[in-house]
Computed example of a mutant assay.
Amino acid sequence: MTLHRAPKSLLAGSVLLLGCLIPATIVWIWHGGHAPFIDIPNRYAPPSLTHPLGTDPFGRDLASYVLTGAFNTTAIAVLSVALATVIGTILGLVGANGGKRGWAVMSAADLGLAFPPILIAAMLVTAQGASATGEILAIALFGIPAQIRITKQAAQSILVLDYISAARMAGFGSVAVTIRHVLPNIAPILIVHASTSLALAILSEAGLSYLGLGAPPPQPDLGRALASYQIHIFDHPFLVAAPGVTVMVLVLGFNLLGDGLRDLLERPFARNEESLS
């Protein structure tokens, strides 16, 4: 596939994400994942060549703080979605095969959808305290029930095809059929869902941190930055705009990336499905 034939949404999402995450990674490595140095005499400095976005109430370079927070927020979102995808896919495949185990899995997924996400996060934080690990587990628990349902529906559309029956008649068990035939054919759907789930995970991470349920200070975080700087929305609006716009760029980038991947993968997947049927 040539670059000019790629979906425009895929290109736009890639540009937004790379434009944000490449400098974020560089700044994160430069500062070792920590917040910039405190410089009280230089606080509330206006934008300049030394401080492109100015400084915050502690005299820290705002651009460095926000970019480091963007890296941390994205890392937590990626780990959460990866965990939800792996666990949800496995359980969804079990649910697609039916039986008592399948019924138990789908019942648990329905129960998970009934609980408000913020309640799960609050329970985890109460149990082990505010931490990045608790935040990852909470966001992953948000996504597992939906991942189970999507995987089950996609797998069942493959399991009813004739070549699956032929594979079973040839002596292949459920695990072999799932690994060799089902999983490769539903992979495009899982990839698209994971990419769009990252946008929701970014919002969830920012929201949990804003409420004080995320990783504690001094680790930079976009949600906590918004919560800390919101009192300056009228006297120093740039303090609120910088992390807010960064969250918006990340969410928009992952949404566009997911839309582009869907457009890119749905046609080959549809052709493959027609040939199999």
Results as ranks from 00 to 15, higher is better:
Thr126Leu: 09
Thr126Ala: 11
Ala127Gln: 11
Ala127Ser: 14
Ala127Asp: 08
Gln128His: 09
Gly129Lys: 06
Ser131His: 09
Ala132Asn: 07
Thr133Tyr: 09
Thr133Gln: 12
Gly134Ala: 05
Gly134Phe: 00
Gly134Trp: 04
Gly134Met: 02
Gly134Ser: 03
Ile136Arg: 06
Leu137Gly: 08
Ala138Met: 08
Ile139Glu: 09
Ile139Lys: 11
Ile139Phe: 06
Ala140Trp: 07
Ala140Leu: 04
Leu141Ala: 13
Leu141Met: 14
Ile144Trp: 03
Gln147Asn: 14
Gln147Asp: 13
Gln147Lys: 12
Arg149Ala: 04
Thr151Lys: 06
Lys152Pro: 05
Gln153Asn: 14
Ala154Lys: 04
Ala154Asn: 12
Ala155Tyr: 06
Gln156Glu: 15
Gln156Ser: 10
Gln156Gly: 01
Gln156Asp: 05
Ser157Val: 08
Ile158Met: 08
Val160His: 14
Val160Gln: 15
Val160Cys: 10
Val160Ser: 13
Val160Asp: 14
Leu161Thr: 14
Asp162Lys: 13
Asp162Asn: 14
Tyr163Phe: 14
Ile164Gln: 02
Ile164Asp: 03
Ala166Thr: 13
Ala167Trp: 07
Ala167Ile: 06
Arg168Trp: 12
Arg168Asp: 11
Arg168Ser: 10
Met169His: 12
Met169Pro: 09
Gly171Pro: 12
Gly173Arg: 02
Ser174Tyr: 12
Val175Asp: 11
Val175Glu: 13
Ala176Ser: 14
Ala176Met: 12
Ala176His: 13
Val177Glu: 12
Thr178Glu: 05
Ile179Gly: 00
Arg180Ala: 08
Val182Phe: 03
Val182Arg: 03
Leu183Glu: 01
Pro184Gly: 01
Ile186Pro: 00
Ile186Cys: 04
Ile186Val: 08
Ala187Asn: 07
Ala187Gln: 09
Ile189Ser: 12
Ile189Gln: 14
Leu190Glu: 08
Leu190Gly: 07
Ile191His: 02
Ala194Phe: 09
Ala194Pro: 01
Ser195Val: 03
Thr196Ser: 12
Thr196Leu: 10
Thr196Pro: 01
Thr196Tyr: 07
Ser197Leu: 07
Ser197Pro: 04
Leu198Gly: 02
Leu200Arg: 10
Leu200Glu: 13
Leu200Phe: 13
Ala201Leu: 09
Ala201Met: 10
Leu203Ile: 10
Leu203Gly: 12
Ser204Asn: 05
Glu205Val: 05
Glu205Met: 02
Ala206Gly: 15
Gly207Pro: 10
Leu208Cys: 05
Ser209Lys: 09
Ser209Pro: 15
Leu211Cys: 08
Leu211Met: 14
Gly212Glu: 07
Gly212His: 01
Gly212Trp: 06
Leu213Asn: 03
Gly214Thr: 04
Ala215Lys: 07
Pro216Val: 05
Pro217Ile: 05
Pro217Val: 04
Gln219Trp: 10
Pro220Cys: 00
Pro220His: 01
Gly223Pro: 09
Gly223Phe: 00
Arg224Gly: 03
Arg224Phe: 04
Arg224Thr: 09
Ala225Asp: 01
Ala225Thr: 03
Ala225Asn: 03
Leu226Asn: 00
Tyr229Cys: 01
Gln230Asn: 13
Gln230Ile: 11
Ile231Lys: 04
Ile231Gly: 00
Ile231Arg: 00
His232Ser: 00
Ile233Cys: 01
